[in-house]
Design a protein around this nucleic acid. Sequence first.
DNA 1: GCAAATTAATGATTTATTCAAG
DNA 2: CTTGAATAAATCATTAATTTGC
Lengths: 220, 220
Amino acid sequence: MPQTPSTRWCPTPEQLMILEEMYRSGVRTPNAAEIQQITAHLAYYGRIEGKNVFYWFQNHKARERQRLRRRLCARHQQQTAAVAPPPGPGPAGGSSAAGVHPAVMQLHHHHHPYATCSFMPHHLGGYLGQQHQQQAATLPAVPAAAGAGGKAMLSNHQQPEEWETMEHCNAATASGGSSDELPPCCRRPLKTLDLFPTKSTGLKDECSSSKSSSCSTSTN
Amino acid sequence: MPQTPSTRWCPTPEQLMILEEMYRSGVRTPNAAEIQQITAHLAYYGRIEGKNVFYWFQNHKARERQRLRRRLCARHQQQTAAVAPPPGPGPAGGSSAAGVHPAVMQLHHHHHPYATCSFMPHHLGGYLGQQHQQQAATLPAVPAAAGAGGKAMLSNHQQPEEWETMEHCNAATASGGSSDELPPCCRRPLKTLDLFPTKSTGLKDECSSSKSSSCSTSTN
DNA sequence: GCAAATTAATGATTTATTCAAG
DNA sequence: CTTGAATAAATCATTAATTTGC
């Protein structure tokens, strides 16, 4: 069969490189428009959809943070019995390498080749730019008026997050934008979300679900 | 400004009633097609979009469960330390009006009047059934090839969840369906997800983040 | 040397939390 | 205070590495 019916997007090295570079330069949660652009650009190197870009940033961000947490935790546990660690353990001479290369953005600007441009996580039905969808036939028997994606793209690119111990390279608002419509709902202040789920808001966890499991990496 | 640019969907009593009835009859996480249908139906009673239906079910489900958890927890704590001073004033008697009428499902079947049918969480750009969008003008300066929604609809309507202590009304798979394409990725077994985040899969929590907060219903 | 069996990464989905409009 | 909307965390599932047996 000519077309590998791979259900999963498989990023090419180039795509990955670009994405990582973007991430490094500060892009964390691109909004719809940005995702579109990125997608269009990356499409040059192979099949890719908006949702892929979206997911990639989500996952990358989450996992980067996770990794950090784990590290800090390990370290914390090491010196646990000792004393209260200095408030700002910081990367401790780690690879603070702030030397990030600036605007890598427009590596090449040419639009189109692939750019399926359809978001919508899955089978929902990409009735959008549905113009030359080879596999349009495989689309399910969804009634008819099939809408489109459900949840969605983020909107505001809130920079600060692992900004803390990470390589907090500035170059904020990498994607230039800033002149978008920015609808009323997406201007969340910033949200101070530190590495550890402090959750000091008030009523958070319903119960005291004592989840006591060490950091041991047990195989799944 | 003739049209209140209310950013939020405001469900009409009828819409709410129908939604609740559906929920009661087992609908928990309708898929895209179902959401479309529901949206179309509810659109008869007022403006509504797919995402609204989607969110409604999400929230309703989550909150129902949350309420339960809180109750159980409270009870548990009550008989635990036999103290637990009521921290907050508490809403006391909630409106638990459970008097709902049975199978309301197809109250009327007529499609259309409103049914914006566009999902996509927000500003993304509802370039879909974009046919008579009054406010199409307000759409941002999204480049051009604007894709569509981002995250998304669920797919399999996994029933079991609060099935436990809830009113576990059966009538499962209310929306008939079951003959959809159901792409390879969405056949999750069932997922046994009980009320308390047991999390016994394996390596879960990175650390032993001792989040010790009682179930006290502190006002937010 | 290859191919089945395991393990590690990571793309995709679902659930839980949080924010803020009404 | 209720609840629609948005985001982050957790989870699942598939693909790529890697190991092991022949």
